[in-house]
Simulated assay, not measured.
Amino acid sequence: MIEIYQLYKSFDKLAVLKGVDLTIYDGEILSIIGKSGVGKSVLIKSIINLIEPDSGKIIIDNIDVTGFSEKQFNKIIRPKFSYVFQNGALWDSLTVGGNIDLALQIERCLDEKERKLRIKESLHMVELADIENVYPDELSGGMLKRVSIARAIATRPKYLLYDEPTTGLDPVLANVINNLIKKLNDELGITSVIITHDILGAKNISDRIAMLYDGRIILTCRADEMKSQDNEIFNDFIKGKVIFDDN
């Protein structure tokens, strides 16, 4: 379980997170929605220690990681996490297998034979068998997304963070990725946190929805209860209406 209390983060004079409170439960899929630029990526990058918050508290599996050094975090916490970047962040100079192998060499103590088996297993799980020797520039956008997910699950994390996994995909491919996220969450017994603008996809695969607005989580609800919330900002957003900031 991940517990976040009163998390604040500013960049120069721009306040992005203004006291975020959020609990992420083991085994769930939680989608975080909100306008572009509202701080969703800052929030999940703070969880994984890619961004250092100004103040607040983050507790991961009952361990208060607030103030952890990078060395402490890398040793104790980081092996629990994998991150799927919005653009995939694959190395063009490496094959698909090489990209996944790089993650395994960094995150896990496996010998070469075990790593090759893990690569095959992970690609099979995202329905991309036998492409270890293909280079990223030979793949379609949807395949690149699946390779980046395969790399993320190869280390067998407890927590998997997705930053806009369906961005740039047509509705059919977006549905494929969303269904894959749900399948992997169930099969691997992991906890998934998704930043997304795909409201329909979030509703279909998530256990809960959280909305970030003006630096705070203004509402959390079960995904199947999205349409019955008494919050005008939330309701306007999921209906695609323009939201004007008060400040």
Rank of each mutant, 00 (worst) to 15 (best):
P79C: 09
P53N: 05
E52H: 08
N74T: 08
D54T: 12
N49P: 00
N62C: 08
L50R: 08
F73D: 04
T66G: 08
D64C: 11
F68T: 04
G56W: 11
G67Y: 06
K57Q: 15
P79V: 07
K75V: 00
I48G: 03
I51S: 06
I58V: 11
D54F: 05
V65N: 08
I51V: 15
N62E: 15
V65D: 03
I60F: 11
P53W: 10
I63G: 02
K71R: 11
S55C: 04
V65C: 08
E70D: 12
E70F: 00
Q72T: 01
G56S: 06
N62D: 15
R78N: 10
D64Y: 14
S69F: 03
G67I: 10
K57H: 09
I48Y: 15
L50C: 06
S69P: 05
P79E: 08
K75D: 06
R78H: 03
R78L: 09
G67N: 14
I59R: 13
G56I: 12
P53C: 07
P79R: 05
P53S: 13
F68G: 04
N74Q: 11
P79H: 11
E70K: 14
V65E: 06
K71Q: 10
I60K: 11
N49L: 00
G56T: 10
E70P: 00
G67C: 07
N49A: 06
S55W: 03
L50T: 02
P53F: 12
Q72K: 07
F73I: 03
D54I: 09
G67F: 09
N74R: 14
I51A: 05
I77L: 08
D64I: 13
K71H: 08
I47Q: 05
N74F: 00
N62H: 15
F68D: 05
L50A: 04
D61M: 03
I77G: 05
S55Y: 07
I48P: 01
I59Y: 12
I51T: 13
D61W: 01
D61K: 15
N62A: 13
I58M: 09
K71L: 05
T66V: 09
N62S: 15
R78Y: 06
E52S: 09
Q72H: 01
I60P: 08
K71S: 11
I47S: 05
G67H: 10
I48D: 12
I76F: 02
K71P: 00
K57L: 08
K57G: 04
D64A: 06
V65P: 02
I59Q: 13
F68Y: 15
I59K: 15
D64M: 14
Q72W: 01
I58S: 11
K71T: 07
Q72R: 01
I47V: 15
G67S: 12
L50V: 05
V65S: 10
D61F: 01
E52R: 13
